[in-house]
Simulated assay, not measured.
Amino acid sequence: MHDTLTHPLDDPDIDPSDIAAQAADDIAQLTGVDHHDIAVTLGSGWGKAAELIGETVATVPATGVTGFSRPALEGHVGTLRSIRTADGRSVLVIGARTHYYEGHGVRRVVHSVRTAAAAGATIMVLTNGAGGIRESWRAGQPVLISDHINLTADSPLEGATFVDLTDLYAKRLRDIARSVDPTLDEGVYTQFRGPHYETPAEVQMAKRIGGDIVGMSTALEAIAAREAGMEVLGFSLITNLAAGIQRTPLSHAEVIEAGRRAEPVISSLLARVIEAL
């Protein structure tokens, strides 16, 4: 219902924070929950975590909330869920991610993050399925994001808005995650524009400039989360080794299948990490 030319975020004269505030009001009305403490975006392979975080209070279709677009990708469920943890905190679970490659503009890519902040969340957990550059990693392995390289040539910040990204993926939160699972490795996420997978040469470029993970999401969302004052925790599920590292051709079906196999383990991990935050 929000994929028409009249989408509110497509109007350059409208402040995206105003649309996020409207969306947060919609969520409060639709879920009956006035305030959320933590928000989680569930990327490919992470969907089952919602079942393990706590008790679901309400589930609403994302397209019923101001500014949200219908997900274009299989593996993204298109709902917003309010979950109450055992210790009484409210978690907003976002199963509706708009990817940069869909061509809707950065405002719509980061709208879910800005909405989460407007709903009260002070921690933003961003998850994705991605390609791994390190040969020691295996398909189905979760890794923490320690930093990112944004190769989209774009930003969610508008005008003379200067935001420090020194500790964007908060060390405090990564330390908490490692207290839950000391075996967690970490690496630098590199966001490409997509939707095509990277060439072997592009993967080698990412490696040379300091990247360990390649994908098509997360970096722009993380910047918007920091602008909104949230702490960010990032997780990548390594669904495959990247082009040229892996010797067989890449496919989206492979990504989905790796996520399906890993889902029980990584979902349990994510639920335990959120409980510890």
Rank of each mutant, 00 (worst) to 15 (best):
V106E: 14
R81T: 14
R84L: 14
G120M: 10
G105I: 00
S136N: 01
L80R: 02
Y101D: 15
H76M: 11
V125M: 13
G88Q: 01
G95S: 04
G105E: 02
A118W: 09
R84E: 13
T122W: 04
S112I: 06
G78H: 00
H99C: 07
Y100A: 09
H104A: 15
V113G: 02
G95Q: 08
G75R: 04
V106Y: 06
R134G: 11
T79Q: 03
R70S: 12
S146Y: 11
A86S: 07
T79C: 01
I123R: 07
A96L: 01
E102P: 06
V77P: 00
I123C: 08
V110W: 07
G88A: 12
P71K: 06
A121G: 03
R89F: 10
S90R: 07
R70L: 13
P71W: 04
G140A: 06
V110A: 04
G78F: 00
T115P: 04
A72Y: 02
S82F: 08
G103P: 02
R114F: 10
T98N: 09
S146N: 05
D87R: 03
L92H: 13
S146C: 15
V110K: 02
S146G: 12
L80F: 12
Y100G: 11
L126C: 06
T79I: 04
S82G: 14
G131R: 00
G103V: 05
F68P: 04
R108V: 00
I123A: 05
G105W: 13
P71T: 11
V143D: 02
A72F: 01
A86L: 09
T98W: 02
G75Y: 01
N128H: 11
E74H: 13
I145A: 06
E102C: 11
V109I: 01
G78T: 05
M124T: 13
P71I: 09
